[in-house]
Design a binder for these strands. Structure first.
Lengths: 343, 343
DNA sequence: AATAGTTTTGCAAATGTTTTCATAAATGGA
DNA sequence: TCCATTTATGAAAACATTTGCAAAACTATT
């Protein structure tokens, strides 16, 4: 007697308390205009008193949207993905969606498993990062009827609508910038490109642009460095302690460039007087670092926002097809690069 | 005739194709050992061929766990939260959980709304960031039966088990460090403390420690600066351009400290010779920046991991009560601070 | 007061699973 | 070969909702 049977509150118990049927309670939530004002009041009171919370799972099996969007990123450890996820999440939250988030750590097998799990949850839409994915991933999405988009990169021939920046042009831009400043002895530091089409595209565009200009990068000036300031500082130091030294280093992203800046300082070189260093991304802090970093801006916030708009529109309006959008990268020239002075 | 009725694949259609009842298909997934090998094979084939994906929503209404954990953070824009979320997510993913993630941007009202939505989704557990939350938030969680923990901060008297660092001791540590080095003219730069119990705790601990040592911080040396390198650079510059100048600046986190470092450089001061600057957090890059930053390490990865372990254990084993854990902050002395030289 | 029309409500079927219980099939020992 | 077990399967109820349809309760009109 002392211990109250902590009966689960469901629509049934609300209905009982308000002296109506469950149908009416359901209508109270979904089509309130069909319910008489006084009844509405009564139900509202019952809901309040019992602390009733609707069960989306039960709604979802009626084909009603789950209100979730699956977001799959390689990792959140890179500030830049966190930023894009944040702005995506904020945007879709306004339309009432919550995100199911998971990261695969650049492992395609894991991406497939995550995707399956998200489909089990009956997400209303899927966002993948980058253009390249396992064929099984594409097949699985194709077999479903939910919209999905590729975020971060852009390409018109992408498998799904893509919203992001063209990493090829980002790479080409920065290479052209250094070439136009007269640099010909250029080193490259890029992250491992395996499972990372962004880095791959940037790298190949840089190399192509340089080759087209008749500049070749010797093997020992092509550094592969994991995404880490300390590693890139170390590798840069090693590079700059050789007798033959480049006049510029193109880094695959701003984190690597930041490490390279520190490495140059540690090697006793002044940037940009002794050496130019560039990044790609325009991360937070890149404008403030000393010297301010020349880089290519990839508009993460905007990409996340546009992707959120596009996907939620595609979900809400099932007829429409989401359309890709190129958020153009932009060359930002700051103080870490300068024209090669005459020898 | 040409157009195949794209019948939704459900357990029913799989059962039909495999010539068994839905019960058997259900058992195939949940208790395979109860199903004969040859039947299992037949079902497997049917599942494959039809591309059947289980419907977790339908399972969830049977009181089965949803397999989701709600994670609510102030924002992902701060690398540090992204890191803790990443490691939390990885940890619980191993136990088969997926996270529902949302951020409230330091708005308590929004936190409540997000929480409600997550409960509608019948998350199996809830993670909140920090110790302080609206009383309505606590009440709502209390009215449910799911476990929940507070991540990031630690306090033994917290409302729910807390896993994180004690920001009071972090603040005290860094203040003591500078005092022990002989500094008495100390400025403080902290983010707005409203809705941010972490910053609040750090700040009050710093002030208390200083006051106890007989050091008072004049108002115009108490800077409130939003979490941004550029703002803190600007504010630092302004501070250092006054005639009276502190010998040390305690910053509420490493981002502010990074900006302060840049600001000092821009003001033509050498760190640590002319001024000491400290952070709190030990973010990525803090060890590599020039000069390497003296700070207090808050072990984000570990916090996320431990929180993930604790919460998934509490979910899987409903009897047990999750217990809090203090991941101790640690003073990391690097090159951005040094004993005050005799005048 | 009776009728027609409109608004509000409830009944019951449907949704995609799981699970209990009962039955059918296979197995083993005599 | 028969009976008692054991193993494998199916029927049906349960889960928490939504929704189509029909009945009931109002309103307005005469």
């Amino acid at each position: 007697m002392t211990d109250i049977k902590q009966k689960q509150v469901d629509m049934m118990s609300v209905a009982k308390a308000a002296n109506v049927s469950t149908s009416t309670v359901s209508r109270y939530f979904n089509h309130p205009e069909l319910v008489k004002l006084v009844t509405r009041r009564r139900i509202e009171t019952a809901v309040r008193k019992q602390g009733y919370i609707r069960n989306r799972a039960a709604q979802t099996i009626h084909g009603i949207r789950s209100g979730t969007i699956g977001v799959i990123v390689p990792t959140l450890d890179h500030a830049i993905f966190a930023e894009v996820v944040q702005s995506f999440s904020d945007t879709v939250a306004e339309q009432g969606f919550t995100i199911l988030l998971a990261s695969h750590g650049y492992d395609q097998q894991r991406e497939y498993a995550i995707l399956r799990k998200m489909l089990e949850h009956r997400v209303d839409g899927i966002v993948l990062t980058g253009l390249d994915h396992d064929v099984a991933v594409f097949r699985l999405i194709d077999s479903q009827t939910i919209p999905s988009i590729l975020m971060w990169n852009y390409a018109d021939d992408a498998r799904y609508p893509s919203i992001g920046s063209d990493n090829n042009s980002a790479g080409a831009m920065i290479a052209e910038h250094l070439l136009s400043q007269g640099h010909r002895d250029i080193a490259c530091m890029f992250p491992p490109t395996r499972g990372n089409d962004r880095a791959q595209a940037r790298f190949s565009a840089v190399m192509e642009t340089l080759t087209d200009a008749g500049v070749s990068v010797p093997d020992h000036w092509q550094l592969t460095t994991v995404y880490s300031i300390s590693d890139s500082k170390r590798d840069t130091l090693k590079l700059l302690n050789r007798t033959d030294r480049p006049t510029a280093i193109i880094c695959g992203n701003d984190i690597l460039a930041t490490g390279a800046l520190y490495g140059a300082a540690a090697a006793g070189l002044r940037v940009p007087d002794d050496i130019s260093i560039t990044g790609i991304g325009d991360f937070k802090g890149s404008a403030e670092i000393e010297p301010a970093l020349t880089t290519v801006r990839i508009p993460a916030k905007r990409i996340g926002h546009e992707a959120g708009l596009a996907l939620s529109a595609a979900i809400i309006n099932p007829g429409s097809v989401a359309t890709g959008l190129h958020c153009k990268p932009k060359l930002i020239i700051r103080s870490s690069s300068r024209p090669l002075s005459e020898a």
